[in-house]
Structure formats: structure tokens, C-alpha cells
Amino acid sequence: MPSKTKPVIALAMGDPAGISPELTAKVVALPEVREAARLVVIGDRRVYAEGEKIAGVTTAMDVVQAGESLQPGETPIFVDLRHLDPATVKRAVAAETGGRFALANYKYALELARDGKADAVSFTPFNKRAMRLARSEYDDEIAFSAEVAGLVGPASEFNVLDRLWNARVTSHIPMAAVPAALTFDRIERALRLTDACMRAAGFERPRIAVAGYNPHAGDSGNFGREEIDVIEPVVVAAGKNGIAAEGPFPADTVFLRAKSGAFDAVLTMYHDQGQIAMKLMGFDRGVTLLGGFKFPICTPAHGTAYDIAGQGVASVGATWAALLLAAEMAARR
């Protein structure tokens, strides 16, 4: 592939107190990643240098200043915002300065993509507490990304492990609030968004398994009626609209079936229903994809891992997978 057709990925450095600096350095050093994409890393050169030291890698980069125009090529570019002295970073402590650092990097990356200067955005892990210290109204990455880059439709978070996708109808809400949120419209919207995002990622006709809500998917109504009253009608309606959805299936075995190749995705009804299985099947490789934007946004599914930060032992697998997924999706746009 000639280099100018390789997608440009804006990679924002995440929380400086955890494993993000070392992961950023590690992933940039991977020839496979540079083969798949032209990289623009956004952060502070000094923090990045610390990350390189911890990771034991060095990569030649073209360093530019904030606002400078970019000509991305084979050599990765580093946009040096010069906004954080690593001497002020206390390892494994969520701090306002760290939150501001990550937010500024991420905002810069989103603006590059919004303005057509990058084809996809990726970032190493944020620390939610630090983000909220820096910006009290910070809700989540979707809300912030929508504010900076605008939405093209409903947005949702997907978890991707190898080729298996997981989308959820409800996410960060109390379990007691889930049943009322499981409406026909809401499930259908999640299903359509999953189908659309997966097509954008290259699945011709994604096969989506829809999980039930109750134990044994309600066991024909013996353990709850949501399957019969709401979920199944959505699956039937989706089928008529050309979406390859099946279900509802019992949640305790649907992931095994999907993993064995029967499905490309599982749509789950609540947060832990999908998160437990996905994290078990690939804690070190899972990717979070923010769908619903004009460009793909991918990040490792794991967090800042304060307990192992600075040791250079953090696995780069999920960050690597996040960049490859972003590159693959961007290349199809």
C-alpha cells in the first residue's frame, strides 16, 4: 500500500500517572502499526520521553508545535503541546493536571479528525477521576467527543475482541433502572446502530446475537417476560429490515457461541452482561470503539492500571488492537 493512502490516526496520550505514556511509546514503536497507519501523536514530548524510557523503546519522530500544519508520512509526527512537565506527575495518583493533559490531547486529536486532517482517533487510557478533577462536568468520552466533533446519529460504545463485537442497550445505569429502559425503540436503535457501525467496519452483513435479559432468557416466560414482550419483537422486526439478528439467547452461553464463530456480535441488555464475558475472554486485547461519529474512535478497553504503572510490564496488546481497528475502519471510509 503506498503511504499516502494509509489512514492518518491521531493518537492522544492518556492519563500520565498510569500506563498510558509507556503504552503510547510501545505502540508507536511497533512496525506493524506504522505499516497500517500514519501516526500523529499528541502530547508532551517530555512525558512521551519518560514513556519511552519505561518501555525501553525509541522511535524516530518529526516533532511539531501546536497549530503547525501536518504532512503525515512514514515517520510518525509528534505534536508537542508542551503542557506537562513529567517532574510534576505523581505516579499512580489521579490528578487534575493529568486530567487536563489528557483532555487537551484528546481535544486536539478530535479536532484534527473533525477538520479532515486525520481519518481516525485513538487514545491511551484516561482516568475518569482525573478527568472530572480537570473538568467537573466531564461525563464520558462519548459526550465529550460529541461536544468537540459533533454526532452523525445516536452514539454508542462497542467492545471489540478480535473479530467479536459487543454492544449494549443500557450501560451506566442502576440495575433497578434497566427494565424500564428496555423499550422496543431503545433496543431497536441499539441494534440498528450496531449493524451500521459493523458494516462501516467491513462486515458485509453482521450476524448479531441478541441476549435475553432474564436467566435462561426467561425460560418461556417462567423467569420474566421481557424476552417475549419486547426483545423478541425487536429481533423479528429487525429481520424484516435486513438486519441479521437472532435471539433472544440465554446470556450465559451466547458469548461462547459467538466466540466459536456463530455470530459476529452480541447485543447485551445491561453493562455487566457483556463486560463480564468480554473481559474474561480477552482482558489484554479488548478494544472500546466509540461508534456514531464521522470517524472511528478506538481505545484499549482496560484502564490506567496504576498498580503496574512505570514498570514497563503493561501489555500493549489492546492498544495495538485499538490502532489496527481504527486503521481498518478508517481505510474503509
Binding site: 436467566p215 435462561h216 450465559d252 463480564i276 464475558a277 474474561l280 475472554m281
Partner: peptide, 14 residues
């Protein structure tokens, strides 16, 4: 609840 227990054990030890 049921699936909180069953999802991990089926995934690990089907």
C-alpha cells in the same frame, strides 16, 4: 443474580 454467576463459569468451564 443468576447470570452474574453463570456467565463467568460457563465462559471458563463450559
Amino acid at each position: 443474580y443468576h447470570d452474574q454467576a453463570l456467565i463467568p463459569i460457563k465462559t471458563l468451564a463450559f
